[in-house]
Nucleic acid binder design. Sequence first.
DNA 1: CTGAAAGCGCTTACAG
DNA 2: CTGAAAGCGCTTACAG
Lengths: 338, 338
Amino acid sequence: MKVTISDVAKRAGVSTATVSHTINNTRYVSSETREKVQEAIRALGYTPDASARSFRTGKKRTVGFIVPDISNKFFATLVESVEEYLAAHDYHLVVANTKESMDREETNIRLMSAGLVDGLLLASTMDDFHRLDEIIPNGFPVVLVDRVFEEKKYAAVSVSNFQPIYRSVCRLAGKGDRRVGFIGGPERLSTTQERLSAYMQAVADCGLADDRSLVQYGDFGEGSTLRCLDALLQQQCDGLIVANGLMATEIIMYLQKKNIQMGKDIDLVSFVDYSSNFYELYSNSMDCIIQPVEELGTAAGEQILKRIETPESPVLEQMLSSSYRPHTHPQSWNHSDR
Amino acid sequence: MKVTISDVAKRAGVSTATVSHTINNTRYVSSETREKVQEAIRALGYTPDASARSFRTGKKRTVGFIVPDISNKFFATLVESVEEYLAAHDYHLVVANTKESMDREETNIRLMSAGLVDGLLLASTMDDFHRLDEIIPNGFPVVLVDRVFEEKKYAAVSVSNFQPIYRSVCRLAGKGDRRVGFIGGPERLSTTQERLSAYMQAVADCGLADDRSLVQYGDFGEGSTLRCLDALLQQQCDGLIVANGLMATEIIMYLQKKNIQMGKDIDLVSFVDYSSNFYELYSNSMDCIIQPVEELGTAAGEQILKRIETPESPVLEQMLSSSYRPHTHPQSWNHSDR
DNA sequence: CTGAAAGCGCTTACAG
DNA sequence: CTGAAAGCGCTTACAG
């Protein structure tokens, strides 16, 4: 019932070796023989079995991507960008969603590294590098994406947000804001840590109010963003740094519901997905920090294919930078900054 | 270097059959032998090779999902929901993005059905059922998702939007609107077609202006949404049906920029992603049509596993329904409808 | 220029 | 209760 390479060989009157070689262009085949083989393939409707092939060669031409939240626009775009790069290089993408659960991440790393994929892209939710390190088989190609660790054992691509955050806080200080609040994602994540430290340093350098209760962490749970916002509003903030794209849209919504005007009642600096309509809608009333998601995906794709195809190449940590866009004046809708 | 089942068998002093059976719980093994095997597995750090296993059994425990646009919130959530269902049933998900290109879709169907996955979920961008049908190997498990075809050859899960659109048009008519415009996605898609026919029928039944230039199709290209909107504004529409979630956010943005107030200058009925913040933000100034994305994903997961695991089961077309939410009164922010 | 044959790492009848 | 062995469908040295 299933057509195999032997069926083709038989019909063409050649060996399976010859069939294999004609298909893969892996050694010389006389054009005469080649003809016969191709005619047999066509006649029988033969398609080489990917499963057998990858078992035999040990290469699956597949990479896994373990993501904390696919439905988050940031990661959805990242997945899209990675998939595009991989597809262009004849690789497939297997996606797993952890929903920020370390256990789900562990399970997925184990499953994927057990022969399902050639390499792993990992936007980790782990708080402990060593837990992660123990799970990953020795020498298995891995690239950390977006979220990284102090330990420089694995290749990594991430985005630095230090500068944009530092600048934006200084800018608020320059405008006269004294109490600038900070809302970030889960404290354990490297991204949150880096953003916080930029904020802290700017607060110190600009002599702003340095108050522990001006820093709030969300956990992506139900109502968590609103709790953060309320906490900061009680602190009489005149400026707000929202260091997380997902929370940003929620914050805007709540401000609107509470009738608090951005750029008037409160200054807002926020992470924002470039292609999202939120950027278009609010770029005139708040400062935006835009992460280069597409580039991040491409870089991640490049790195993992390099690790897979030339494992001896040096392990490198790559860091892209976000761009910072102070808000445009409300009256000018001519998109001069694009 | 790589630890195989024979290494384990040797160390435990048993046959590979016994090792296999202890691992898979597929026949009785005395607790004594079991002990020895497990000790050997631990000692050697053995993990069964997924590739060899799936080659041998012919089952990959993997399904492919071919999607037109992963970064679109609708599909991102759909992917998330499908992945969740599959993961719960020990299946993996391979994703491919076609960007609404029929050629990319064709390539991906071929690749995936050639032994990469056990079955295929397909949100097709094809205009021609027969082109699709020719590509899919006979008897290969396929479930059409969201976008379906007249021909009832494949299992399918989709969302009916007829009722909500019909109702919403009638509601606008009841409010006194005479010229109601319609903006949909690409004309070839079944989703667009169904939504259009609901609109047309309501227009006829309610005696609204029936004008060919009141219907506009977007193609997701640069500036396409704005062109549609401008065309309809020129037609002096007093109501607007935006039959596509992606375009909806753009429309809102443009209206805001043009200073056209929803619910006042123009009545808006729009597709919206439930969990998106747009819903929260604008549910008080427009009518929303909300598709049951999570349920769609679960249903798709169910269907494809059924087709894979019991291929003889009847091929069925499943249809979910969207919900229609007339806009809440601006003053009432008590979320009474949730 | 091409073929015979081993073998990748498992699973699974078959046999005892 | 367990083992010996075939075989899934390819690829690839080896040989001529």
